[in-house]
Design a protein around this nucleic acid. Structure first.
Lengths: 168, 168
DNA sequence: TTGAGATTGAGAACAAATCTCAATCGTGGC
DNA sequence: GCCACGATTGAGATTTGTTCTCAATCTCAA
């Protein structure tokens, strides 16, 4: 009995990052290399589970929460425990492949960011859709504010909540 | 098991302000009137607990989380259950007296906003200090973004995390 | 190949928030 | 002022997201 939550976000294009025909050593994707190097540098092991999770994360192009993620994997027959997911995502975060977005919702959600630009979120309170936006001007203003206060900014979260045009 | 006595009467109003040379009923503060009206309009009752919580909220001028808040009340001998606090804060939020700020921290915190201006937060990851800032320019840019997407904004959360000048 | 040490899975443990329900209170009508 | 009744309360139980525990298992450098 785990949950019954919503937040089914917008469509994904699922841009087939999956491996090409597997007969010869499939060329390692960018993110695989990043993760592998990170693990090595940290003296951590490259396990089947970690790789399965990595691949799955990069198949999602939208936001997801851990429970939904776990469910989806089980349906596909990929057996990885929830605990491993909880343990692996922070690693992916540490090596910059994934971003954890704590929202005003109870639970956190994640999104992969490798090769993507930083962005902020619009969240529809009716349908749960999450849209992204990026404003260089806002970013600049934030930097300015931090500079003035001698605050060393590490990251930020900007989430605007309301109703999307379909729900308004 | 409701437990023995509770509600050992007394003092609902007259928040000991040692009124100037007051000989007449202490004038209700602004926020008290707001809350009272709100309760009435909603057919809710004005209870001792609700008032105690309201007063306490307006004594804090900074951010607080529910547990800390509850503890502080107990120390003062104000007996109100955690459950009541959890139930009352959303009411105060509804009538615009209090703001719930969900942060990237695990738990939410609150701050009263009556008579205060909207603002965003800088959070120091080392010492936990929370600073406020307000940027009309950022606000305007956000509105612009929403307009362009036909998104009806209700509220937003902008939190910048990093290290304050004392911790850097 | 091997063994030290990292990792895993299942379930227990936690913690924040919410719910349950009998006892009790607040309020409008007399 | 008194009543009746629905709203509210407190204490503890429950829910829910996340983290921890530990025996079994796996990884990888030597």
């Amino acid at each position: 009995m785990r949950k019954t939550k919503r937040r089914e976000g917008g469509k994904t294009d699922n841009r087939g990052t999956a491996g090409p025909s597997s007969r010869r050593p499939v060329p390692e994707t960018d993110y695989e290399a990043v993760f592998r190097d990170f693990l090595q540098a940290r003296g951590l092991k490259l396990t089947r589970e970690r790789m399965v999770i990595l691949e799955e994360v990069f198949k999602h192009d939208d936001h997801f929460d851990i429970d939904e993620f776990h469910m989806k994997m089980r349906k596909k027959g990929l057996k990885v425990s929830r605990a491993s997911i909880y343990r692996t995502l922070p690693l992916l975060q540490e090596c910059g492949l994934v971003d954890e977005v704590k929202t005003t919702e109870r639970q956190a959600f994640y999104e992969h960011i490798h090769g993507r630009r930083h962005h902020d979120h619009l969240v529809c309170l009716s349908c749960g859709k999450v849209m992204e936006f990026y404003s260089p001007a806002i970013e600049r203003l934030q930097e300015e504010i931090c500079r003035r206060r001698r605050f060393k900014s590490l990251r930020h979260v900007l989430e605007i909540q309301g109703h999307c045009k379909d729900c308004a």
